[in-house]
């Protein structure tokens, strides 16, 4: 019995070690994750988050409050934006350095404590009040979950399917008909778009109906956003699968695309105040823009115009990925 077990054990080991692509992947991936999280969370979480308006380099000395430890100061360009965050309890205080004003949400526990600290350190600041319920985590995380679902469904549903077709010869059989690569790929995209939109809508409007999750924007804007985001992610799946003949390698590439997006695209937690390098990395990921735009629409009531920068980036990414996929696409299969 042992010799049989050993024989299969050996065969499987050889299979693993000889598959270079998945081998590299199995080693590289955990390292990447560890490094990634080191950079994101290396400095630990602050106790308070304070929005700061009109902070200029011109200040000779900052208020004493700003020297305190364990408080993260997040600069904002516009007061409205910062106040919105305070209303939703996403930041604890807002400071306007020019006018020596601060805003606090009286319903926020953290706000209360932060205010005490500020008043102690800099009594010259004047008090203003904002009001608002905290945004529930479920409301905040829902766009993230939808986005993640779209991401997996798009990448794996299109990318994997094409690699599988290529491997098992379905693609080759289709190549032997007048069907063109363009028609084939378009059909794949459309089919997945339909599925993704259907599933996303059911989850979104289902939870809105059943759990009365927040929906401040218009359903139309949300659908348009999800559609554009899905298109970008499907195109990414196509680009990844355009050439590959190995399911293991494609799986690796897919993981390489999905894991950073799960970690950095603010699906589960906000990256506000994370190091700029991490933020710019996050901005290079399509899911970041999909989730941000959807979240602004549902939790802040943003219009399509207000999220147009995200949408434009997504459209640009779609064009880029489709271009890569068209350049690299390969009908051929190993299958004989």
């Amino acid at each position: 019995m042992m010799s049989r077990l050993l024989a299969v054990f050996n065969a499987r080991n050889k299979e693993f070690w000889r598959d270079r692509s998945s081998l590299a992947w199995n080693f590289a991936f955990p390292f990447l994750l560890v490094f990634g999280f080191y950079f994101i969370f290396g400095q630990g979480m602050p106790m308070f988050k304070v929005g700061v308006i009109s902070e200029h380099d011109a200040y000779i000395s900052r208020p004493a409050f700003m020297q305190l430890s364990h408080i993260q100061f997040v600069p904002y360009e516009e007061l409205d934006q910062a106040l919105n965050r305070a209303r939703r309890h996403q930041i604890d205080l807002v400071l306007d350095l020019d006018r020596q004003l601060y805003w606090v949400n009286e319903e926020s526990r953290n706000g209360y404590v932060a205010e005490r600290l500020l008043v102690n350190a800099d009594p010259e600041f004047n008090r203003r009040v904002v009001q608002g319920e905290p945004i529930r985590y479920v409301d905040w995380v829902l766009p993230g979950i939808i986005g993640m679902n779209i991401m997996f469904s798009s990448l794996f549903g299109v990318g994997y399917a094409i690699v599988r077709y290529r491997k098992n010869g379905v693609l080759k059989r289709l190549k032997a008909t007048p069907l063109s690569a363009f028609e084939f790929v378009s059909a794949q995209i459309l089919s997945r778009l339909l599925t993704v939109m259907l599933v996303a809508s059911i989850i979104y409007f289902g939870s809105h109906w059943a759990l009365s999750t927040l929906m401040l924007g218009s359903a139309f804007s949300l659908l348009v956003t999800l559609f554009i985001g899905a298109l970008a992610l499907i195109s990414l799946g196509l680009a990844v699968a355009s050439r590959s003949r190995s399911e293991e390698l494609t799986g690796g590439l897919m993981n390489m695309a999905t894991w950073p997006m799960m970690g950095l695209s603010q699906v589960w937690f906000s990256l506000e105040g994370a190091p700029p390098m991490v933020q710019s990395l996050a901005n290079a990921l399509p899911l970041t823009h999909l989730v941000s735009a959807a979240r602004e629409i549902t939790t802040e009531g943003a219009s399509l115009m207000q999220v147009s920068d995200h949408l434009l980036i997504l459209v640009g990414m779609t064009a880029l990925f489709l271009g890569v996929a068209a350049l690299l696409f390969n009908w051929d299969s190993d299958h004989r």
Binding site: N168, G169, V170, K172, R173, A176, T177, P178, H335, R336
Partner: peptide, 13 residues
């Protein structure tokens, strides 16, 4: 291809 019919040695459908 419009005028040709092909049966491969083995094919997945």
């Amino acid at each position: 291809f419009e005028r040709v019919g092909i049966q491969f040695q083995n094919t997945a459908l």
